[in-house]
Amino acid sequence: MTSIDDIITPMTTEVPFSTEDYDYNYNDNFTSLMCDRESVRVFRSQYEPPLFWIITIVGGVGNLAVVWIYLNVRKRLKTMTDMYLLNLAVADLLFLVTLPLWAAEASYSWIFGHTLCKINSALYKVNLFSSMLLLTCISVDRYIVIVQSTKAQNSQMERRRCSRLVCAAVWLVALLLATPELVFSMPTSVESKYYCRMVFPAYLGNRAKILVLSLQVSMGFFLPFIVMAYCYSVIGFTLLNTRNFEKHKAMRVILAVVVAFVVSQLPYNSMLVMETAQAFNLTETDCEKVKAMDKMEQVLKSVAYMHACLNPFLYVFVGVRFHRDLKQLLHCCYCLPLPSKGSLGKTRSPLNSTRVSVMSDSDNSQALSL
């Protein structure tokens, strides 16, 4: 599991690396200081498990509802955004599957073996990267549909076919970026307990840790943030200069998406940037500061993970179509009465019919909020 306390740099020893020696054949930037991190482990054991389970349950329910609606209610993906949102829900679900294992590790120890350590670490990173890249794809698709609406209308079928290739490319890139976790993750012993961590061989030096952290920060935050910031800025400018458009509703959706992404991801990735810089110079020598950073990292990491709970509400459940589909899903599960056809099929006024409403079923509306 990638974190400040979990990415381990190798021992500066001439002994060749061996997985048979991993009990104590590892250290981090501060082991030489004999810094006792027992308080950090106690904090993690009390803080992470309940929060991780809450994130898993809430995010699981929301994302399962999205998958169920797409596969059983709609049964057809009409737009590129539909394809991206379905893949995003799957990525979030696979990411949430890893959290109970990390919660169990925090409470007790890593008891799931060597192979599952590698698989869980790689699965966590695959879905971290795929989620962020899919959010990037959604912002680009919204940009094309809103800012280049004529081009988007003329190439709907082509873009729909292209979305499958884009999703396949996203998963492939995420798999490649998760290769270090699959190769170097293993259970390591700390005071009679085992933790699933990345352990790098001595010949790689500190470069491996710097590379892993740099990839996570650049591909998992900065690239998506730059693309999203540009796309949504242009979209917002376009909406503000468009007549007969429900601008306020659309701008609230855009603002919610950007704020949620920045608030959840920026603090944790800023901490990872600090960790990367520290891996270059190894200047921190205060044990108390080290432990304070570790605890802060645990808190910020949990905040970043909450984005998996927010995605269904930010990107899916704000739209009229999904409100209707969700009611149909609840009707099937709990035998709730469905709204009358009259309420669902009310005729629009001539003024409303000419609007490209952010809450309508048009391709333009799906580019903002389904």
Rank of each mutant, 00 (worst) to 15 (best):
M1R: 09
I8G: 05
E14N: 09
V15E: 14
S18R: 13
T19Y: 14
N29D: 10
D36I: 00
S45C: 06
P50G: 06
I55K: 03
G59L: 04
V66H: 01
V67G: 01
W68F: 12
Y70M: 03
T79P: 01
T79H: 06
D82L: 01
L88H: 02
W102E: 11
A103L: 02
F112G: 05
G113E: 03
H114A: 00
K118S: 11
N120I: 12
L123I: 06
Y124C: 12
S131T: 15
Q148E: 13
M157I: 10
R160C: 00
A169R: 02
V170C: 05
A178G: 03
A178W: 00
L182H: 04
S192H: 12
S192L: 07
Y194A: 08
P201Y: 08
G205N: 03
A208F: 01
S214M: 06
S214A: 10
L215R: 05
V217L: 07
F221W: 03
A229P: 01
G236Q: 06
L239V: 15
E246R: 08
A256M: 14
A260T: 13
L266K: 01
T276I: 15
A277I: 13
A279G: 03
F280T: 10
N281L: 07
N281P: 01
E284F: 06
D286G: 02
K289A: 09
A292W: 13
A304G: 09
Y305V: 09
C309F: 03
V318G: 10
V318P: 02
F322D: 10
R324M: 07
H331Q: 11
Y334E: 01
Y334C: 12
Y334L: 14
L338Q: 12
S340I: 00
S340E: 10
S340M: 09
R348Y: 08
S353E: 13
